[in-house]
Design a protein around this nucleic acid. Sequence first.
RNA 1: AGUCCCAUGGUGUAGCCUGGAAACACUCCGGACUUUGAAUCCGGUACCGGGAGUUCAAAUCUCCCUGGGACUACCA
Length: 614
Amino acid sequence: MGLVFKADSELRKDAKRIKEIIENKVDYINSLTAEEIQQLAQKQFPELLQKKEKEVQEEADFIREIIEEHNRTGRFDGKVHTRFPPEPNGWLHIGHAYSINRNYNFAFEYRGKFNLRFDDTNPLTEEEEFVESIIKDVLWLGVDYEDRLLFASDYFDQLYEYAVQLVRKGLAYVDDSSVEEIREMRGTITEHGQESPYRNRPIEENLDLFERMKNGEFKNGEKVLRAKIDMSHPNMLMRDPIIYRILHASHHRTGDKWCIYPMYDWAHGLEDSIEGITHSNCTLEFEVHRPLYDWYIDQLEDEEGNPIHHSQQTEFAKMNLSYMVLSKRNMRMLVEGGYVNGWDDPRMLTIAGMRRRGYTPEAIRNFSLAINFTKREKLIDMSILEHYIREDLDKRCPRVMSVLNPLKLVITNYPEDKEEVFSVPNHPSDKSMGTREVKFTRNLFIEKEDFMEDPPDDYYRLSPGKEVRLKYAYFIKYEDTIKDEITGEIKEIHCTYDSETKGGESPDGRKVQGTIHWLSADNALKVEVRQYDRLYTKENPMDTEEGKEFKDYLNPDSINIIESYVEPFLKEKESGSRSQFERNGYYVIDIEDSSKENLVFNRIITLRDSWGKK
RNA sequence: AGUCCCAUGGUGUAGCCUGGAAACACUCCGGACUUUGAAUCCGGUACCGGGAGUUCAAAUCUCCCUGGGACUACCA
């Protein structure tokens, strides 16, 4: 304020003149069109147009609101403890990554904890192999469960004790009915169920029978333990749900200790309770299970007779991606039908597949956090995922030259035995990535598609009569095309170079429209390149037309293996290392099939291409 | 058919509780810049499922309708 006053008094005498000048300027500005203002700004004040550092926006989703509400009311004493509870019976995919990342992020943001817990309650379908692959995947994603690698099977004793408690309270009974009988008596969505004839067995008898179930006195399917709730409940799950079934099967962790195993609804909420989970987030199909989840927990008490910890279950919608199917069933068909090469095929959006494809955990995380938890079903456009992948790769990948589909180019006025070495930057904007040396010789390779005999007007690259820049090297001018006399196929292109343009700049200020990449034919390294593309050609392959199935929408060009050339130093890179092949895309050295003798690159993703699209 | 859930540009989300000129990201279309037709930067097109009601004012509150989804495994 003081400053304004001072200026005001000093300038008062000129006030009239200043007012006039300002008015003129305002009139002038008002006379401009929006486009003119924009052009002026871009020319004279580009810094004004720089985007402001974005304020870190608080992620907002409905589960966060629930957490905030709990924090306000003190329901969990301000604690946040989430978990990811996979069943070890399959491979994790990007949908799981979404859930893992977001659940982990809740814990991270609220300084809480995150558990990895295997929900291993069904020995018939679960295998140790999946435990290992899931742990590997979760760690790769970069989430930290500290020392909380947990297993539901570790709680089997406690779960059994809780069940005994329920029986003692008269809230559970042993039922001798067969699967069919139980199914029949359950009723339907619109009809009430009927009570089992065993429903009113005395507590002592139930206790005895349940213990004998545990001791292995009965065969599979002979008896089950059921909760006594309400056979006419509109929610089918509340019609005396099964708590334990008899399964004489060996468990991957508990061996043959148990022959009764808890059902999902019984086990899951109690696992959450035992671990002190505050926010148990799961997918929408479990919404109807919540009343049962709550009911079980509400009936039980600890040794002192206090209610047991009650987590809040909240359901969110699964994530679906366009041009992909993420269901376990569909993925299994792809693998078993041989449409892809295993669960870690780089075309699969399994975590293992993405790791092999070269996607980064950071990109997957950014993507996951961008797609909020909601309750509405979604089919996310693949381009959103691709955006986050490119965004991360652009920052981190050193640039390198490659020639995917080679065309020989001879610089006719360049001496046969001459060899030059150019020092070129590894990244156009990140100087800290340093430089490397690239050899230049008379015989080169360029990309087939960088030459056209009869190009359209807006073709920037090499063509008869055109001069282009070989990136980091020289300007070259077209001279001649050598063709196979019989087939007419283009064998090589002859050009001349301008020695004055070393490094790619012309001293006379002459400009070229196109810049193309190249490789010295005498020094290039031959490698295998796997050009991957989307697996499906249809946005939603599950939305099948009459008489078609998902297979009909598989992209026949989802993989294309070619022999290509790259800069020789890549031989020294480790598998899994990523580069941008300039103008071609991002590539990673395959972690399975690549070797020093036969380098194999996977195309992670193409560059955006505003020319190719036209 | 019973219970429950959902509905904002092309896609994904914010805004709804606490009514007041619908915002962000991606895609798309233009433009600036460019030794990657990349990146970066600027601009543009385009949205509240429908109908009543309450109100000065409704994406927001109320009611009805429509559309989509979940649930009838000794799976999770």
